[in-house]
């Protein structure tokens, strides 16, 4: 058993006998020193979706999932096709990728993990840290170099995130995919 706050996005919990994929999990401190976790769940048997809340220390029964390394092959409309090293392809709809969709873009080389439940692919996890290029951001107004002042920046796929004010157009940045936060400026991937 795990506590609700230990359950991660793209893990599966057995709730009242039904397997539920955790598509989103938000941890919040409520009152005094307790906390809650709001989850967006998808039922893997019938496809229904629901939003739930648990106490952070509520016990949940995790389902052990099979995982396999994959790379993005191509995107066709709402369909995302990934391929493993043996050239098996796995197709997912955008709704199955909700938590990672903002960071998926054509041509990305990140080694991802396809997640399987009873032999069927149900989602894909990205690496914790990914590198993306900024395609648009306003010029720095005050010349801040501390990295504490933030401004919006647009990535190649249209996703907007907050970056340090000194980041320029065409810069490469590191992003933490767990919360979508900017980690720092970096070199273009080799």
């Amino acid at each position: 058993m795990k506590t609700a706050q230990e359950m991660r996005v793209n893990s599966v919990a057995l709730i009242d006998g039904q397997p539920w994929l955790i598509q989103k999990a938000e941890f919040t401190k409520s009152g005094r020193n307790s906390a809650i976790v709001k989850m967006k769940l998808k039922n893997l048997l019938n496809g229904s979706k629901t939003e739930t809340v648990y106490k952070a220390d509520d016990k949940m029964e995790p389902v052990i999932l099979e995982r396999k390394e994959v790379n993005l092959s191509y995107i066709s409309g709402e369909d995302y096709v990934f391929m493993d090293p043996e050239y098996n392809s796995y197709e997912l709809r955008s709704e199955d990728l909700e938590s990672v969709l903002p960071f998926i873009e054509e041509g990305m080389s990140d080694v991802c993990e396809a997640v399987f439940f009873e032999g069927k692919v149900i989602s894909v996890d990205l690496p914790t840290t990914i590198v993306r290029q900024v395609v648009y951001t306003e010029n720095a107004a005050r010349g801040d170099t501390s990295g504490k002042v933030m401004k919006p920046a647009k990535l190649r796929n249209g996703t907007e995130i907050k970056v340090a004010e000194f980041v320029d157009i065409d810069d490469w940045i590191e992003i933490d995919t767990r919360d979508g936060s900017y980690k720092g400026r970096t070199q273009a991937p080799a």
Partner: peptide, 16 residues
């Protein structure tokens, strides 16, 4: 608990 934070309305009444 009582809180005026934005997230409260998004969690009120949700099943567990």
């Amino acid at each position: 608990y009582l809180s005026a934070e934005d997230w409260v309305a998004g969690c009120h009444g949700l099943p567990s």
